[in-house]
Design a protein around this nucleic acid. Structure first.
Lengths: 156, 156
DNA sequence: CTCGTAATTGACAATCATTTGCTGATATGG
DNA sequence: CCATATCAGCAAATGATTGTCAATTACGAG
């Protein structure tokens, strides 16, 4: 089984490649590419960890981008509808985090219970189990959530 | 791999067996067995599905048990501290659910996206994967959350 | 390039789940 | 049966998220 950590984003370079496609997606559903949406998308691209609405808001404030927290929520809602963003609800965090799909594969996360560090796990051991569950429960399974918690190397 | 659904509770019978032990646990930490805690425990025992604080509150109201919602939350907090209850934060539900451990084994859940039915999955395919993750991330893993979503037989 | 219109924003209030502060009620050992 | 520390109930605070509405802005048509 192949398990890789880390990030394969290439930073702002991708913005130029990504933006026209996203604009197309927006237009196709009667929406517009605005400067606030650009700012949020750019931030999501250069951010390594899944970010909360508040973190997006704070970060953009620091970068002198004027944006309302409400607009951040609305933007995330739109990006979710377009299927461009994953929403993560990590156990006992009490808030949602988001990350760009951007061609990334299905994956899961591990979170440090001390410092909150979140690391990607590029593995999914659940394909066989899903079939088994479908057979035995008669459900049609179409999603799953898998998350690990523990202590990161720094916090042990 | 053995996967069973369903419930092995035997209802109120267990209350008699369970209560003295729980009272002991409470007393050991300077706490008391009160009638509200009894009512909540009894409800948890005869309930099949993981229940939210509000559901506990509503259900007890119907049964003419006077209890404040705040007290439900505080009771769940105590029961969690004593390790008697699991807290579940299911994906996109935006609230917490609770279930009695009561000698039940580690397990996971599947939730119907239409009607909200939650079924227990008495399986856990993650032991090997946990070791692998520990090796490769250098984390010490001490918990995980696994949840499936889909359509139950009725809702397909 | 300008305009009109519909989508979007921001400011503010509302909502929902959950927590906290305070005071009177009550379980429990003595 | 009493003393007292824990507990319940109520009110109000909190933090995340959503709804309202007037003012602003994107963008295709001309």
């Amino acid at each position: 089984m192949n398990l890789q950590q880390g990030i394969t984003h290439k930073g702002l370079n991708l913005l130029l490649k990504l933006e026209p496609n996203i604009k197309k997606d927006l237009r196709a559903t009667g929406r517009r590419m605005t400067r606030t949406r650009q700012a949020v998308l750019a931030l999501l691209q250069r951010t390594r960890q899944p970010v909360s609405a508040n973190e997006i808001f704070d970060q953009l404030q620091e970068e002198k981008v004027a944006i309302d927290l409400v607009t951040v929520y609305r933007t995330m809602h739109v990006l979710k509808e377009l299927g461009l963003v994953f929403q993560l609800d990590l156990h006992q965090e009490g808030l949602s985090r988001y990350e760009l799909k951007e061609g990334r594969e299905h994956h899961h996360h591990i979170r440090c219970q001390i410092c909150g560090l979140i690391v990607d796990l590029l593995l999914c051991p659940l394909k066989k189990v899903t079939k088994l569950i479908e057979q035995q429960t008669q459900f049609i399974v179409d999603d799953h959530t898998l998350e690990f918690a523990g202590l990161c190397p720094q916090c042990q």
